[in-house]
């Protein structure tokens, strides 16, 4: 399973987005605000999700903010960190 696919699955599961299917989440859809509709509390939960499921640590929100935009940006961040 690709990082993106896995991301979508764990996002739905851990953020309890029961009414969303993985393929309904567009890779470039904004995760916050309009788009998927997540908020600041989801943002910090996402940091935990990334740590727990991918072993990648996001130290603070300054570092995390650019990554936590879309599935694409987050997957890219994770892939880079896993490769590095």
């Amino acid at each position: 399973m690709s990082v993106k696919e896995k991301l979508k699955r764990v996002l739905i599961e851990d953020l309890n987005l029961e009414d969303v299917e993985p393929d309904e989440i567009d890779d470039d859809m904004a995760l916050f605000g309009e788009g998927l509709g997540l908020d600041s509390l989801d943002a910090v939960e996402l940091v935990v999700i990334v740590q727990k499921h991918f072993g990648v640590e996001i130290k603070d929100m300054e570092e995390g903010r650019p990554a936590l935009q879309t599935i694409n940006t987050l997957a890219k961040y994770i892939e880079q960190r896993l490769a590095g």
């Binding site: 509390l41 989801d42 910090v44 939960e45 935990v48 740590q51 727990k52 640590e57």
Partner: peptide
């Protein structure tokens, strides 16, 4: 999962 996985929710 360890302290770094403490759930804020």
């Amino acid at each position: 999962f360890g302290y770094s996985c403490s759930s804020p929710t």
